[in-house]
Design a protein around this nucleic acid. Structure first.
Lengths: 246, 246
DNA sequence: CCCGGTTGTGACACCCGATGTCACAACTTG
DNA sequence: CAAGTTGTGACATCGGGTGTCACAACCGGG
């Protein structure tokens, strides 16, 4: 889901991209930050064969996933705040302006294709048998939502560590969380026959979001632990009642 | 707590402040946004009497509270994003740079003296009799924390509406919430004998934060409702157990 | 093989939030 | 009045984000 690198082609006329500095009214001397990295270290195709799937127009130079990889590595190496968009763009071999066509902001890179993933949770909740009570249904759906193939576990951990430990990203994540909560609230509203904006669905959504994040933070602290059991314990606090669990 | 306007004095040599535009290398034509508003509409003292409390140095031209008032009004009128820091500074009759000496960012204006207020909650929790169970103690403390004098109710509503409905502020608020959660978690940790960073204290803090915000949102929707009963109902969801309340 | 339509990129120009620096204003105390 | 202290304003600079426009690269069809 995360590695769909499009068919790579060799880059003709790539001479200009080295000095790809956007913005900056400053007529200065250049301040070349990133070095001229090849856009992808994937296997390069020798011939100029046409592999395009009948799609019109110029082929993308990179992909959102590849940008995300570059960005995450630089973030980890230099820190999120100290990394400029130009750094990421240069590392990916694209211009600054192009970066913003893949991601709306520097913050958004960290979350990748969260929204698409979220849709699967919505669908999963909608498909829950009606005889499963609301809270256990949520518990199950949230666990599923956060279940990743083992191969991606390390990647996921690094991504979440970045998100949950960088203040700017913590803040920005609120907007993602809002959509996540909307999905949960929608389900609770439908199940309990209340309006989606009513207190109970919203409160439940908030509460589940909160304990889930607490679970994530616990997971990040425990070096080699599995996420799911911890998350399950956190969700259990709500499902079984806080009082009984303290 | 919020209205401590310092003794106003007439402003000598105020001629320059009209064109108080900071930054901007642009040698453009000016783009004068805010009009030259008087810094405070409070009663002006005629004589130049010395009322200072023995404090050395130049007296502040304005105050954080006054800036907050100006800012909130402009935000409501023009929208948060469309309001520039220069607008606020101009309205308050100060320079842009001076604004940032009162508040670290445009976002921070909205929250005012939240941190100071938070300390009282910490103290209140610490002073809770040990025979009161954890969850009811939290419920009580949170209600107290959000109890404002009736005179400030409208002000508080407007402030929270701004915060909870402006994406940029929603995001930024995460950082305030983190400190709020830390206070709650500290209390729970002490009561339950766990580490402050352990899963349960953090989860409880998150959950209470969440339902409290849900309560606030409900309050904002209901035009003339009181905050406290709604908030109490939201907190009750956790204290009494989610399941029993759905 | 050129031609128009489509899609992606790069350069340029700007806006605005935020920060460091420094000179100067205003006030207190001696 | 001089010296020390505190607040303010102007200047310069950085970096994220956006609109615009020309151009590149690919498609199909004539």
């Amino acid at each position: 889901m995360r590695s769909a690198t499009p068919a790579p082609r060799e880059r003709p006329h790539s001479a200009t991209t080295a000095d790809a500095r956007g913005g900056g009214k400053a007529g200065g001397d250049g301040t070349v930050r990133g070095d001229d990295v090849a856009p992808g270290d994937d296997a390069s195709r020798g011939d100029g064969s046409r592999v395009s799937g009948g799609r019109a127009g110029r082929r993308p130079v990179t992909s959102a996933a590849e940008l995300e990889r570059h960005a995450l590595m630089i973030f980890e190496e230099r820190g999120f705040d100290a990394t400029t968009v130009d750094d990421i763009a240069a590392a990916a071999g694209i211009g600054r302006r192009t970066f913003f066509r893949y991601y709306a902001s520097k913050n958004d890179v960290a979350w990748g294709e969260f929204d698409a993933h979220l849709e699967t949770m919505r669908a999963g909740l909608a498909a829950t048998p009606p005889d499963v009570p609301v809270l256990p249904a949520l518990r199950r759906a949230i666990l599923d939502f956060n279940t990743y193939p083992a191969a991606e576990a390390d990647w996921h951990r690094r991504r979440m560590a970045l998100i949950l430990r960088t203040p700017a990203l913590q803040a920005h994540s609120m907007l993602r969380y809002a959509r996540w909560r909307a999905v949960v609230a929608e389900f609770v509203a439908e199940r309990t026959g209340r309006g989606e904006g009513a207190l109970e669905p919203q409160a439940v959504a908030w509460a589940f979001l909160g304990v889930a994040i607490a679970g994530y933070e616990e997971w990040l602290v425990r070096a080699r632990a599995d996420l799911i059991p911890i998350l399950d314990r956190a969700l259990g606090l709500l499902v079984d009642g806080l009082e009984r669990s303290l």
